[in-house]
Amino acid sequence: MLRIERSQRSQRIRSVALAFSLMVCTAMHATAATYVVTVAGLGGEPDYDQRFTGNAKDLDKIFKDAGSSAHSYALYGDAATAESLKKTLATIAQQATATDDFVLILIGHGSFDGTEYKFNLVGPDLTAAEIAALCDRIPARRQLIVDTTSSSGGAAAAFERSGRAIIAATKSGTEKNATVFARYWVESLQDPAADVDKNGAVTAMEAFTYATKKTSAFYDSQKRLATEHAVFNDIGHGEPVREAGNGQGQLLSTLTLVRYGGTQSVANDPAKQVLIAKKEELEQRIDTLKYGKAAMDPSEYRQKLTAALLELARVQAELDK
């Protein structure tokens, strides 16, 4: 089963201190809802229309299958107008609360004239600034805009805001060719291989990494020069980046987009709290070991890691009883 909710246990990041802060953060949002709006803009040609609509429908299905905490809206075909998008975002602005999450996914063609990005819609287009203003009215403190269009890098600056992560399929507005990123973004939410830490959930960071790697492999296999280089920014200011680090990637790592199966029931069982605490202590020990791997003697590292992993496996087995 797929669900959309914030991660209860985020993707682990090497820094132990960071892991603590994430746990606090995710605990706060355990029961919140997620609002997702997917828009497939104007294709211009039957092939593009078909592809964009197909991607939007797939995403809508993934999110609708995710359960009651997810509210998914998809606009495609003739419904993909500026007016419809404004109305949809206005509705969410009325329904969502500050503790909810909001995700906007733009699929299609974009354009950038050197100063202004526009998302191509049926009828009048919307600029990045207009889209950002519409999102600003939504009270959800944690937001994610995934712009998979051509020239989407040109929208990044206008989208940036504290608490809002943005993903763009292109590094700048000048990468103007049609993109394939959307296809792999959809695939990341369907392929369990995207869940690299095997915690049963795919975060926005994992989805970004998966889609980026697949996009790059696509151009490699076709022997074509890559005309898109996806970037993200989740600190609300500055240049978008291609990889996590220096503060970038924390918000994306806590935004869970899909979850495979139920994994949270034990968390509510008081009888297992000691084991959970032990598990978390072991996880931190493993993080610390991995963080210090380069500075350790390889055999010592291996010995300590093996011991910790084995103990963690035993604790997990106890928890699963």
Binding site: V196, K198, N199, E283, L305, L309, L312, A313, Q316
Partner: peptide, 8 residues
């Protein structure tokens, strides 16, 4: 498990 310690 080094890559994903919680991989059941």
């Amino acid at each position: 498990l080094e890559a994903a310690p919680d991989y059941k």
